[in-house]
Write a protein that binds this DNA or RNA. Structure first.
Length: 417
RNA sequence: GCGGAAGUAGCUCAGUCGGUAGAGCAUCAGAUUGUGGCUCUGAGGGUCGUGGGUUCGAGCCCCAUCUUUCGCCCCA
């Protein structure tokens, strides 16, 4: 029989690594709580429309990266490529923002994009993200960035770059778009072919190009910041001032535009030198127009997301992965397999007292059982031989200092209560 | 979607000029009868990613395909 392989770009999270995921989840849960954010879980698939109406028809995500299929009822559904659109759908549907003007949410889960796999880029990947719904003010932008930074700090990552930019409000963006198209069209003969097509479909994305000739052209391109109207400019300035005064380091990048259409005003991205080609491990921004696009009433919001696999890659590179400190308290060693029920009975009482306990089930030799106890780093070998079995006792051997004593089962259990 | 590299034991890797595969670690067992770690001895485990082709003969050469990886693209 031929072996079956996992689907391309998907990865098993193996038992030997799962503690790393628990570590991240626990830290993020804890820090989110400190900021008064609550976890939300939405389905991993949605009506395709949710993403079409939000992410943008012209974006790569919608154009070529979505896992879209027709279900048996004829409905077009899509495995979520990101969270924000689905969350907004849920908030509107459940009227989550009706009880209070402000809603603070976080999420953790799998997402799907049909891309060519690479290190740090999987077809099923995981994100942690947070959304702050209800405030149009720069205070919200500052809070969400601060949360992101505290999360990174909590898992021990210090070396990274925070890039920030403003796309301005709708009017500012429209103005800039015209100015940029104008400029790029005048210089189109110097642009790469890809940038020329992007100029037609999604001109802001040309700013992201790494092509050398494109970069030359872009040197003199109009900057978004110059197209911002006073409202947008003030918003951005207040965000920057806030970050400065709170002591957050950042770099302004007037070329940062990000690949989802729903962003407005503040956009930001976290980059690391440890990731190679996929150097961004988190990003987000403000999306004041999204609620309306998804049929809700106008609601301002900011949010961001981290790529969990990328965070783990960074931790691995900097030697920052946590130590797996899972341990076993007692390993039950049976001289004869006949003593299994006797042992398992005691073992389970120990478990009820909060101990982690394993009982031999392979009928191995005494020596092999001792080896096993040692290998899994049990604190004690709990030995059941003929005399223990007959006298209702248990022999405990401390595997650190080899000290050994025999006592009645009753006395042993009582000593732990 | 485009270009480059790589796939041999559970893991890390050797494998000469084409002659049906090796090491270390890991696993398992043993070294006088109820005692681990160190040491020693031994054993099991591979259709050489998959499918074709060339050849008397392919891990090695050729083609295709799958997967991983690097860069592009994109993004978390």
């Amino acid at each position: 029989m031929e072996k079956i392989q996992a689907i391309r770009g998907t990865k098993d999270i193996l038992p030997e690594n799962i503690y790393q995921w628990h570590f991240l989840f626990d830290k993020f849960n804890e820090i989110s709580n400190r900021f008064n954010y609550t976890e939300i879980r939405t389905p991993i698939f949605e009506k395709t429309e949710v993403f079409h109406r939000s992410i943008g028809e012209a974006t790569d995500i919608v154009n070529k990266e979505m896992y879209t299929f027709t279900d048996k009822g004829g409905e077009s559904v899509t495995l979520r490529p990101e969270a924000t659109a689905a969350l907004v759908r849920s908030i509107i549907q459940n009227s989550l923002n009706h009880e209070s003007p402000i809603l603070r949410l976080w999420y953790f889960g799998p997402f799907f994009r049909y891309e060519r796999p690479q290190k740090g880029r999987l077809r099923q990947f995981h994100q942690y993200g947070a959304e702050l719904i209800g405030s149009p003010n720069p205070e919200a932008d500052i809070e969400i960035i601060l949360l992101a930074i505290e999360l990174i700090k909590s898992i021990g990552i210090n070396g990274y770059t925070l890039l920030i930019n403003s796309l301005g409000n709708e009017q500012s963006r429209a103005n800039y778009r015209i100015a940029l198209i104008d400029y790029l069209k005048n210089n189109s003969e110097n642009l790469s072919t890809e940038s020329r097509t992007r100029l037609e479909v999604n001109p802001l994305r040309v700013l992201d190009s790494k092509d050398e000739n494109d970069l030359k052209v872009l040197e003199n391109a109009p900057a978004i910041i110059d197209s911002l109207d006073s409202e947008s400019r003030t918003h951005f300035d207040m965000v920057l001032k806030g970050l400065e005064e709170i002591g957050i380091n950042f770099e302004i990048s007037n070329k940062l535009v990000r690949g989802l259409d729903y962003y407005s005003h503040t956009v930001f991205e976290f980059r690391s030198n440890y990731l190679g080609s996929q150097d961004s491990f988190g990003g987000g921004g403000r999306y004041d127009g999204l609620f309306e696009q998804l049929g809700g009433k106008a609601t301002p919001a900011v949010g961001f997301a981290f790529g969990i696999e990328r965070l783990l890659l960074i931790l691995e590179q900097i030697g920052g992965l946590p130590i797996n400190n899972q341990h076993i308290d007692y390993y039950f060693i049976l001289q004869k397999s006949d003593y299994y029920n006797y042992a398992q009975n005691i073992a389970n009482k120990l478990r009820q007292l909060g101990k982690s306990v394993v009982v031999e089930i392979l009928r191995r030799s005494f020596k092999a059982q001792m080896r096993e106890a040692n290998k899994i780093a049990a604190r004690f070998a709990a030995i059941v031989g003929e005399s223990e079995f007959l006298e209702s006792t248990i022999t405990l051997k401390n595997l650190n200092d080899s000290a050994q004593q025999t006592m009645s089962v009753e006395a042993f259990l009582n000593s732990l209560k």
